[in-house]
Every structure is written in structure tokens, then in C-alpha cells.
Design a protein around this nucleic acid. Sequence first.
RNA 1: UGGGACAGCCAGACGGCCGCGAGCCACGAUUGUGGCUCGAGGAACGUCCGGGCUCCGCAGAGCAGGGUGGUGGGUAACACCCACUCGGGGCAACCCGCAGGCCAGUGCCACAGAAAACAGACCGCCCGCCCUGAGGGCGCGGGUAAGGGUGAAACGGUGGUGUAAGAGACCACCAGCUUCCCGGGUGACCGGGGAGGCUAGGUAAACCCCACUCGGAGCAAGGCCAGACAGGGCACGUUUGAGGGCUGCUCGCCCGAGUGCCCGGGUAGGCCGCUGGAGGGCGUCGGCAACGGCGCUCGUAGAUGGAUGGCCGUCGCCCUGCGGCCGGCAACGGCCGGAGGGAACAGAACCCGGCGUAUCGGCUGUCCCAUCCC
Length: 136
Amino acid sequence: MLATRNRLRTSADFSTTLRSGVRNGRRNLVLYTAAIAADEPSRIGFIVSKAVGNAVTRNLVKRRLREAGALSLQAHRTGLAVVVRALPAAATAGWDELLADYNAALAVTTKRLAGAAPRAASPREQGMTEGGTPRA
RNA sequence: UGGGACAGCCAGACGGCCGCGAGCCACGAUUGUGGCUCGAGGAACGUCCGGGCUCCGCAGAGCAGGGUGGUGGGUAACACCCACUCGGGGCAACCCGCAGGCCAGUGCCACAGAAAACAGACCGCCCGCCCUGAGGGCGCGGGUAAGGGUGAAACGGUGGUGUAAGAGACCACCAGCUUCCCGGGUGACCGGGGAGGCUAGGUAAACCCCACUCGGAGCAAGGCCAGACAGGGCACGUUUGAGGGCUGCUCGCCCGAGUGCCCGGGUAGGCCGCUGGAGGGCGUCGGCAACGGCGCUCGUAGAUGGAUGGCCGUCGCCCUGCGGCCGGCAACGGCCGGAGGGAACAGAACCCGGCGUAUCGGCUGUCCCAUCCC
């Protein structure tokens, strides 16, 4: 289990991240990343719907994604809100495949986030700061 | 040796690295750090029954509605379990049965068939009449239900007497129905004997009838703490009673001074309940058994975006080829080596007892049948 401060815990957190975050889709998952205050601990949430499988399968997928998320926290300790939505293919994917998809998607989204909205440098990017910043 | 029946059990093992939840201890301390201990199942599943527990002011009568349905027992209780009875299946071990009542009423019985519940009469059979080319008849009237054919089922069965042909019309035995007596059993029921009338279709997981039985809602129950806010409008009403509670309806009883709706505003947090219970194991006693009494003993999940995990190594298990050795005429079997593949169903959320369903495989015991040997 991740630390409480590293978890997305309310539906408002989830919907804000989904709506304002940068999205990248892979075979097994779709990953949304949004920026939060730079000194806030990064938070991760998971969405594993019934389309993925039964309770056992869903839990396994969730545990693996959580493990991948925990690894990524070492590189991104603060400033990110991440939602991982598992796709049905994740039910049959192996650990290596899932980890690769997660890291690749995270790299793409964080890079795009940094390029599009370097927060202090570009005050013109109004959309990000006005409506998009998740709960701080 | 082969085939089968029943009962029970297991659900890979050990280790390494990185993690998660809870409890305890320590470090000044709560959310930090470290250490130790514990941490999913036989179905945790479906949520189909039954209970515990909590609240509803301990919950009345009638009707409606639901449930159960051989008997006796077990249990907190059950739709569960055990034993027995009856019916059916199997050579047998054993298995299966929603197993009260269609002489209270109503409904339904496809297809086939002449006819499916008032009995009736298609082909037949028999008698009389008529016609005749003497074989018989698209003939007329009557008797009959033994034979044919249909069906899951055709108004008892077999044999005889009888008759024009026939029929419980009559007789014997059998089956079945009603009823009486004797014996056994707690009982369902069983065994034996007698009488009557000769015969009565099935279906109640069809309505229904009978007997017994059933308050409601659920751990988001329910309780405690902290914190936030701002009121306003309309309607009904204070013993001439609004609005509630008693599953639904009616009656009846009780509570009762506020209640209902709309607009606006606020909150989305913590704790208890929360795991020791109809608990597991062993022994002993009672009981055919289910189960129960007594004694000793064990300590074993409690999350809340929801822990119990991820990766790897070695060994073991199963399957399919390959090679070697052994047994056998052969089919084939056993052992060893090495390769590839596989390892199911499935994840606690208040707790138990059941039922049902899913499941790669493996193990143990008892019994039955067939064959061979002594």
C-alpha cells in the first residue's frame, strides 16, 4: 500500500486529473499526468474497471500497477498527480510489459508537461493555472 | 488384476531481494525511524435459506400474502443434517425422490387415434331382413366390445362358465378401492385374517383445499466525539389533533406539537461497534447416527480508494516427445537420464450454521462386482 500522502483519495482528485492532465495511451493502460504544486508529494490513483476481469484479476493488475507506481515515485517525489486506467489487455499482460508501458507513458507525459507548461517561465499558459490545477 | 460405490483430506515446499496492513516495544512524541510477532478460502464466491447482534415505544385482531410438506430425532434455527418408512433405479456396494389431498370444486391433457372422461363405436364380430350372377353386397335394422389399429394413458388382468356373438352377466386366482378385526412399532408404516361392491385415468414445481409456521429493517444496523452554517417562503395543525409507529389493507391501539414541500447556506472528519465465537484439537461418556455432556488444551486477519503483494533461485508434482536398461511372443508396463510445456477455481469487509455453483490435479480409508491363484 502506498503512503496516504502519495494516494489520490477523492473522486474530485480523480476527475480533476483526468480532465486537466496530459494523456498517453499504451496497449495495457492509459496514463494521465497533471501538475500540482511543486513542493507537494506526488499522488497516484488507479482505475481498474470490471471490463478488465473479475476481482482476482483486477486486484492483481492493481497490485502490479501500484508496484510500478511506487518505483516511479523515487524519480518523481513531488509535483505530479497521476491516474492510471487499466485496459482489458492488462489482464493478460506480464509484469515486464506492464512496467514498460507504465514507465514509457509516464516519461512521455512528464516530458510534454514540462515542455508545454514550465510554470514559472510562461505566464501566458492561462488554461493550466486557471482551471486545471488540481486541488493544492 | 480390472471395473465400480461411498466417506474424508490436500490445494506445492524451502530460500533470497524489494514492499504492504495490524498489534506490541524502543527512540522525547501523533502521521517519523528501528525491532519483534501475526496477516485469506474450501469454496473467502453466488447472496438462495436459517440464526446471532442492533434499532424500530416488545410488534393486537381479521383478511390478504410468504414459507414448509412421509415419520422420528438433532440443532440457536433452517428449505440443513441423521436414522427409519414408502416409491423408483442398479447383479451389488449403493444411489435418486418439491414423498399431504384430484370420491370439495374448477381448469388442462399436444400429436396420433373412431373416441381422452358424459363414455362412445372406425375396422370388426353376431342376428334378422332385403338383393344376388351364389363368390358375395358403398344395402337396411338391431346386438356387442372379445379381437385390430393409435397413444404416456382406452373404464381392471389371466383362465374358465356362458352366449347368436359377447360383456364381472357369473366363477377362481391376482392387482386395486372401501371397511372391520388381531399382532408389532413412539410413529410413518409393516405382517396376518375377514367382509363389501365389482373398477375408480393422469396432472396440485395448475388454481385450490388441509396441517403447521412467519413482525419490520439492516453494521451504510446503531452509538459517541469534533467541526461548519444564515436564514427565508408556502401549506396543514396543537385534544374539532397535522404528522408518525405497529410489513400490505380494514379495524383497533399507541406516540404526538410541530410536520411536509420549495429556495438559499454548511459538512463530506475521527472513534466505538470490530472480532473470543452456537470456535478448533485431543480424550472420555451417552447415542445406530446426526449430535450432545464432561475434562484437558490451542489462541488464529481486521483493511476503509480498501493490507495480506512483486521479482527470482532450487527441489518436488502432472502431461507430451526422445535415449538407455529390465520384464513380456506382442500390445504394453516399470526404472533412470535429459528436453519442452502445465499448475486450477478463486480474494475476507459485522459474525456464524447450511445450501448451490466453480475447480488443474493429487492422496487416504472402507465396501461391492467380475476374473485368476492358494
